[in-house]
Amino acid sequence: MTPIANVLDKVLRVLCVVFFAALVIVVVLQVFTRQVLSNPLTWTTVAAQYLFVWLSLLGSAWVFSEKEHIAVDFLTRALKINSKKAMEVFVNVIVGLFGALVLLWGGIRGVGITWSQNVSGLPVSVGMMYLALPISGAIIVFYALHHIIEATQGRGLPSLDEEIREAV
C-alpha cells in the first residue's frame, strides 16, 4: 500500500499547488477587472468558488495523509484509551467512517442530484463542484485504512520520546 500512498501523495501535492495557483490567478483577475477596468468578469466568482472547494477538500485529504491534521483527543481521553496503537486505530476508524459515510456516500448522492444543474458563466455543472466530496472521501478512506495497517504493524505515529529525540 505504501507505493500507492506515495504516488497519491505526489498527485495530491501537485493538484493542491495547481489549484492554489489557479485560485490566486482567478482572484487577481477578478480584482483587476473590477477595480481597474470597472468591468468585472462574471465567471471569476464561480471559478474561484469551485477552485476553493476542490482545494479545501483535496488539501484536507493530503493533510490527513501526512498525519498533520489537528488531533482532537478529548474522546480518547474520555474513553480512557491508554494504548497509543489502540488510540490510532480508533481515531482512524472514526475518520474512515466519516470519509465513507459523509464524504463518499453523501457526496455521490449530492453529485447525482446536482449533475444536471448548469452554472451560469461556466461550461460546468454544479455536480462537478460536488464531485470533490466523493473523491476526497475515497482518498480519506484509503488513507484511514493505510494508517490503521501502519498502526497495527507498529509503524504508526512516533512516541513522544521519539519526537523529542528527533527535534533535538
Results as ranks from 00 to 15, higher is better:
T2V: 05
P3M: 06
I4W: 12
I4S: 11
N6Q: 10
V7Q: 13
L8M: 12
L12I: 06
L12C: 13
L15Y: 03
L15T: 04
C16P: 01
C16F: 01
L23R: 03
V24M: 10
I25R: 00
V26I: 14
V27K: 01
Q30L: 07
Q30S: 15
V31W: 01
V31A: 11
V31S: 04
R34M: 07
R34G: 08
L41E: 14
L41R: 14
L41C: 06
T45I: 11
A47C: 11
W54R: 01
W54D: 06
W54V: 03
L57G: 06
L58M: 12
A61N: 07
V63K: 04
A71E: 12
V72Q: 09
V72L: 14
T76M: 07
A78P: 00
A78I: 06
N82W: 01
K84H: 07
K85T: 14
K85A: 02
M87T: 11
E88S: 06
V93L: 12
I94M: 12
V95H: 00
G96E: 10
A100C: 14
V102C: 05
L104Q: 03
G110E: 01
I113S: 12
I113L: 15
T114C: 01
T114D: 07
T114M: 07
G121I: 07
L122N: 03
L122A: 04
V126N: 05
V126M: 09
M129W: 01
Y130M: 02
L131G: 08
A132T: 03
A132C: 03
L133Q: 07
P134Q: 03
I135V: 15
A138N: 08
I139T: 07
I139V: 15
I139W: 04
I140S: 06
V141Q: 02
F142R: 12
A144N: 04
H146T: 06
H147P: 04
I149D: 07
I149Y: 10
E150H: 06
P158A: 10
P158K: 09
S159M: 03
L160F: 15
D161G: 08
E162T: 04
I164L: 15
